[in-house]
Computed example of a mutant assay.
Amino acid sequence: MSEKQALQTYLQRAREALIWKLDGLSEYDVRRPLTPTGTNLLGLVKHAIGVEIGYFAFTFDRPFPEHVQWATDEAEDNADMWATADESREFIVGLYQRVCAHADTTIAELPLDAPGFVPWWGPERGQVVLHQIIVHTTADLQRHAGQADILRELIDGTVGMRADAPNMPTDEPSYWESYRAELQAVADTFK
């Protein structure tokens, strides 16, 4: 596997982990804010759209062919962190798939040392290469996939890294109840 293929594999795994967290949930559950700052599953995917457009389209002057309002400088704060009533799950996920395909084309067509510019990083930090942007975007998406892990567990108890590789010791509820009780007992000693 080449270096570029390895980088793209981890980027793709982050994408898949994020999308997988929506599987089997109602429209309500993918949209409902579960933290004081409003973090929600569909909003994380919507945010990922803007991330990938920004880093793989704008940075390398390879415009994405569709207008995505929340990925512009004119967008309201946090417009990318939640789906409006008019933005269906199918629309958001479909758009994300098209954005990923566009990003994958950028990765395929440019060498890892291809120069780009991230304007929101400023003139000193903004000079980048494709390799750096793939790593940066993968790290960002993995962070959001981790947020999605926690949100999904709060919704229905589903946990794990991917459907085909959950990376958990067991799915047995009694194990987790005992484990959590043990952790709580240790925490309680510090009250």
Rank of each mutant, 00 (worst) to 15 (best):
D61F: 00
D61Y: 01
P63R: 08
P63W: 04
P63H: 02
P63K: 12
P63M: 08
F64G: 00
P65I: 09
P65S: 08
E66H: 09
H67I: 12
V68K: 04
V68T: 04
Q69V: 10
W70Q: 07
W70D: 02
W70M: 07
A71R: 04
A71Q: 01
T72W: 04
T72M: 11
E74Y: 00
A75S: 13
E76H: 03
E76M: 05
E76Q: 12
D77V: 12
N78D: 14
A79N: 01
D80H: 05
D80C: 03
D80V: 02
M81P: 00
W82D: 04
W82V: 03
A83N: 01
A83D: 01
A83S: 06
T84K: 14
T84C: 02
T84H: 14
A85Y: 00
D86L: 13
S88H: 06
E90T: 12
E90N: 12
E90D: 15
E90F: 06
F91R: 12
F91E: 12
I92G: 06
V93C: 10
G94Q: 09
G94A: 08
L95Q: 13
L95D: 01
Y96K: 05
Y96R: 07
Q97W: 02
Q97D: 15
R98K: 15
V99C: 07
V99D: 05
C100M: 14
A101G: 06
H102V: 10
H102F: 10
H102T: 11
A103N: 05
A103F: 06
A103M: 07
D104K: 10
D104E: 15
T106L: 10
T106F: 06
I107P: 02
A108T: 13
A108Q: 14
A108K: 15
E109C: 11
E109W: 03
E109K: 13
P111A: 15
P111G: 14
P111M: 10
L112F: 09
L112V: 08
D113T: 15
D113P: 03
A114W: 01
A114K: 05
P115D: 04
P115G: 03
P115K: 08
G116L: 11
G116E: 04
F117Y: 15
F117N: 09
F117R: 09
P119A: 12
P119T: 07
W120S: 12
W120E: 10
G122W: 02
P123W: 03
P123Y: 01
R125G: 01
R125I: 03
Q127I: 08
Q127T: 11
V129D: 13
H131A: 14
I134V: 15
V135T: 13
H136A: 11
H136W: 07
T137H: 04
T138V: 05
T138E: 09
A139P: 00
D140Q: 15
D140L: 12
Q142N: 14
R143W: 11
H144W: 02
A145C: 11
A148D: 07
A148E: 05
D149I: 07
D149L: 07
D149R: 10
I150D: 01
L151T: 07
L151I: 15
R152N: 09
E153M: 12
L154W: 12
I155Y: 08
I155P: 03
D156K: 10
D156L: 09
G157N: 11
G157E: 11
G157T: 11
T158W: 03
V159D: 03
